[in-house]
């Protein structure tokens, strides 16, 4: 048993950080955030670069052009994506690799939907993963825009770098456009999506902690760094606790993939991302409330990720249901059996 990333895994994570610093530096994030509405065109060159770097094909077997790695590795690189606030339907395209042509290479942009609600990057997408049925379907948008194939009303997205579309109705299991693909069941993909979304939240939570600590060290008030004040120190300490609780939870979930571990990881990582962004914002005072700082971008993205692939309400219901799920033996490894994964609560 060793819950720490090994040397190869650490190197992979560091490599992803370097890649993003080169291909998606802060200036690019700011360009996207500061663009006039309706927002910048989708950056397909960046998408291809991410594909070439293996972000989407990471878990495909080597014979299929992938790196043959697993979810623990995917979690580490998605942490970096969350840290950099990398935009785009990253999780959906990653899950589509091997099932939707072009997804693995970053040639295709794939978004996903599992229920009526907000769909990200719909217009820019070449295909939509439909995860609202037990088996996985792909809706191709060839010959039209995503919005023509899956009717959705564009909304003014709270996250300036993630266009959202309000989709009220999902296609039935069989339509002219949707093709069933030989993927693992939708249940499995929803779990993976929740995990990789949690990984991005964890990356964001770690980043806002760093930003808060940097500011606390350098910002002088009352003649000294504000980081000398206990009120500020304790705020930062609590941010670290949230991030570390989320980290061990997300990393363990990537190994067990049990419903309970996944829900705990998503719930705690959502919490860490949202609340760390809030505390970071508070710590920056007036600066924190300004558009030019990145804090609000982390907060807004974390709100978005919170709503995706299992919000707090659903995660808590899954976790509550697990408590009465048969005989209990104590610790998570023994106690939590696999249970039906439902996104509609347990009633």
């Amino acid at each position: 048993m060793d819950l720490r990333p090994d040397d190869d895994q650490r190197a992979l994570k560091a490599g992803m950080r370097e890649l993003l610093q080169a291909r998606f530096p802060r200036e690019r994030l700011r360009e996207a955030a500061d663009a006039d509405r309706p927002g910048p065109a989708f950056d397909r060159a960046l998408w291809r670069a991410l594909g070439e770097a293996g972000l989407f094909s990471l878990r495909l077997p080597e014979k299929d052009g992938g790196a043959g790695l697993g979810l623990p590795e995917a979690v580490l690189v998605f942490e970096e994506a969350g840290r950099a606030l990398l935009p785009g339907p990253l999780v959906a395209t990653h899950l589509a690799a091997g099932h939707v042509p072009g997804a693995a290479e970053g040639a295709a942009v794939v978004t996903a939907v599992d229920r009526p609600g907000m769909v990200e990057h719909l217009d820019a997408s070449d295909a939509v993963l439909l995860l609202n049925h037990p088996s996985v379907h792909v809706l191709s948008t060839a010959g039209g825009t995503g919005r023509e194939k899956l009717p959705g009303r564009p909304v003014r997205s709270v996250d300036p770098t993630t266009p959202l579309y309000d989709v009220r109705q999902l296609p039935p299991a069989v339509t002219d456009h949707a093709m069933q693909v030989a993927a693992p069941g939708a249940d499995r993909l929803r779990r993976e999506a929740a995990l990789l979304t949690a990984a991005q939240q964890l990356g964001s939570a770690s980043r806002t902690l760093e930003m808060a600590v940097d500011h606390a060290r350098t910002r002088i008030q009352f003649g000294r760094p504000i980081g000398t004040f206990q009120a500020v120190q304790h705020l930062c300490a609590q941010m670290l606790v949230r991030a570390e609780i989320a980290r061990s939870s997300v990393h363990a979930a990537s190994l067990t993939m049990t419903a309970c571990d996944i829900s705990a990881a998503k719930l705690l990582a959502d919490d860490a991302a949202v609340r760390n962004a809030r505390d970071c914002l508070q710590l920056h005072g007036g600066l924190g409330f300004s558009w030019d700082m990145d804090v609000h971008l982390h907060l807004k993205r974390s709100w978005l990720r919170l709503e995706q692939w299992q919000g707090a309400y659903e995660a808590e219901e899954v976790l509550a249901a697990a408590l009465s799920n048969g005989p209990t033996e104590g610790v998570p490894d023994h106690r939590f059996r696999e249970m039906d994964w439902t996104f509609n609560g347990v009633e």
């Binding site: 048993m1 609780i245 719930l267 808590e316 976790l319 249901a321 408590l323």
Partner: peptide, 23 residues
């Protein structure tokens, strides 16, 4: 019920944190 669910997440995570610290 949600409170119990959250406690489940907390203690699951605490067990994982023990495993991380032992690692």
């Amino acid at each position: 019920r949600r409170r119990l669910g959250r406690l489940n997440a907390d203690f699951t995570a605490l067990w994982r944190l023990v495993q991380a610290n032992v690692s």
